[in-house]
Design a protein around this nucleic acid. Sequence first.
DNA 1: TTTTATTTGTACGATAGCGTTCATTTTGTT
DNA 2: AACAAAATGAACGCTATCGTACAAATAAAA
Lengths: 217, 217
Amino acid sequence: MTDADINQSHSLAGGPASQRKIADILAAAREEFYTNGFSSATIEAIAARAQVSKVTIYSRFKDKDNLFGQVVSTECAHMRKNFVVENLEDKSLRDILQQAALGMMDFLMREEMIRFERILAAEVTRDPGIGELFLDNGPRRLLQDLTNLLELSIEKGEIQSDDVKASAEMFAGLVMGRMDLFLRYGHKMNLSAAEKQKRAKRAVDGWMLIHQQRSQP
Amino acid sequence: MTDADINQSHSLAGGPASQRKIADILAAAREEFYTNGFSSATIEAIAARAQVSKVTIYSRFKDKDNLFGQVVSTECAHMRKNFVVENLEDKSLRDILQQAALGMMDFLMREEMIRFERILAAEVTRDPGIGELFLDNGPRRLLQDLTNLLELSIEKGEIQSDDVKASAEMFAGLVMGRMDLFLRYGHKMNLSAAEKQKRAKRAVDGWMLIHQQRSQP
DNA sequence: TTTTATTTGTACGATAGCGTTCATTTTGTT
DNA sequence: AACAAAATGAACGCTATCGTACAAATAAAA
């Protein structure tokens, strides 16, 4: 759902279009929270960025916590829609995994995602529910999709695994290595498309090798 | 360096032992920062926890930023000393790697480390230098140690790799998978020693398999 | 045009934290 | 005992932010 999609609804009764403002506020809030973290971000700065009065924010959102929660929810919904491990029937497992690896990298290495993860972890102590929300919409979903994919391949006899969940996690681990950690702490990577391909291939080759063995102790 | 080590020095001239207070302040600050994050932690709460007056803190540390920096530095120094990949001459590479994997898990899964990483990433935007400091003392050092170890094994002909750094990162990725991420967002794992062993073995087996092949494309 | 919901700007109260000042007290040294 | 460094507590100025109140303005609907 793009910002534009939200703006289409017209207010039911007088006054300026309110749906649009909500979207503006959420966008502004996201930017402020991403840049300053929860407690340093201020409602007034958000209002200014959204070109909206502070009162309007309080008329739409209960308080700062609520606003932050909404931002995270929105982001999670966005995340859920944009990362899908596809099972392309006609492709080989190798090709599917290669594609998944590239998708994973592109998705997790976006500047947006890095900034999101930076601030979100810090709020887990204050509000553990927010950590669960993120896990359910991001990492767990990703791993589950991957697991499903792998189970199909196992049924087909293409690969072996005695612990599919562990195998899925291994795949993610092989692909990302410590990259997400480095990025989170400000290390610049700027992988070219070719380098990403190379990394994906290395991970897929390694993973396939492990899972084409006869036994997994 | 333990807290006790710091307290051994006696003040050069009159007044209560000041070195001990510095250690107390740092310990208290660490706890407060870990629990509340940088901006929500307050100097007064730190003072109270350290059983020290606020003025004492300001007489020893320039300001809040400085105090936070000192806490991070202390933590980094601690980190540097406590995680070492040892190259035990008489052991097999498999055993060394198994040991390294267990060490890595124990080290990175400590509650302390999880809390540290939660709040640190959030401050990277505000102060990128702090991210670099952490990377240099933690992840980069770990990977470098691992890389050195692997290079020795390559010379001995025990394994093959055309990109040792990538191989070291793969190892870390295989061992940790997405565990550190899950922990950071509040997912409880509580791996038993046996489960850790199992995970370590799986990672080492997989990694060895990949690196005992003839060629690495 | 009138009505009605919504938005706005400004002002406000309340709270809270940073960093400082200063007179006083504590504590180790000489 | 006298001294000097260090620590204390309480108060202060300052700034910032949250969340609210209210009267005026705006824009869509009737």
